[in-house]
């Protein structure tokens, strides 16, 4: 899955930014967006996020996929909220009345969740995993956790290949998933086999690393430096966000 991600090309303007700044910007954007209290300002935040994503070219596709793949969680929330928030009834369905304020709240949550996800995907998701790990370490995340993250990212795609191989073998034997015990058992064996293979792989990996003098520690070799473009970006994002937060409190 990781390999199928929409990575920003290196030459793109965003590639020149300090990775720490990108992480912090996404955090700041999330903080401001979550704190918004009005539908109108949430809409502005969403437009801001969409513009940022669109400027990278991958925005619309990712956005569509996210909206289409609305998770069960959001779906339940969006369907129930109009009926549970009290207010002027908008539509009446028998004993139930959908209130305008409920619909507004549902839309507000949908906008906030999607704009934060978009910014996160655009600014942080497009970082190369190694760069992301180093930036996190430089931001003070415990080194062990960073190592775990980097190693996991490295293995995900190998294991995914393993998974696809096993799944293909099942399909070759005419396995079609249905809601029955046979399917659940088969998936259980698939999961078990995946765990066995991954344990073997981790043993081999540890041995290979020992051969290369691994002493339980990676050195972080990088030279992240703050540049003028970073200052420009920080101002370019910080000022609109501050304005948004103030606008939300004012009216």
């Amino acid at each position: 899955m990781i390999s199928a991600l929409p990575l920003a090309p290196r030459s793109h303007w965003i590639g020149g930014l300090d990775p720490r700044l990108r992480i912090l910007s996404a955090l700041l954007f999330a903080l401001v967006t979550v704190s918004l209290t009005k539908l109108s300002t949430a809409l502005v935040a969403f437009v801001l996020a969409a513009a940022l994503a669109a400027s990278l070219g991958t925005g619309l596709r990712v956005l569509l996929r996210r909206f289409l793949a609305l998770e069960g969680f959001m779906l339940i929330l969006l369907v129930t909220l109009p009926f549970t928030v009290s207010g002027e009834p908008l539509v009446t369905l028998g004993p139930l009345a959908a209130s305008g304020s409920g619909v507004a709240l549902a839309v507000e949550i949908l906008l906030k969740a999607n704009s934060i996800a978009l910014v996160l995907l655009t600014l942080v998701g497009s970082l190369e995993p190694v760069v992301l790990g180093h930036a996190l370490a430089r931001l003070g995340v415990p080194e062990k956790l960073v190592h775990l993250l980097l190693m996991t990212v490295g293995q995900v795609h190998l294991l995914r290949e393993e998974f696809v191989r096993l799944r293909q073998a099942m399909r070759a034997r005419a396995f079609v998933p249905r809601s029955n015990r046979h399917t659940w058992n088969s998936y259980g064996w698939l999961l078990g086999m995946l765990l066995v293979r991954s344990a073997e792989r981790s043993r081999r990996m540890m041995a290979a690393m020992r051969c290369r003098c691994f002493r339980g520690h990676f050195h972080l070799l990088d030279s992240i430096q703050w540049r003028r473009a970073d200052t420009t970006w920080a101002l370019g994002l910080g000022l609109p966000l501050a304005a948004l937060a103030i606008l939300d409190r004012l009216s």
Binding site: M151, Q155, L159, R160, F163, L191, L195, A199, S202, G216
Partner: peptide, 15 residues
Amino acid sequence: RLPQAAMLSATFFVA
């Protein structure tokens, strides 16, 4: 034990 933990974390991510 990091490699093992990472491997299992990746397995669960994929599964």
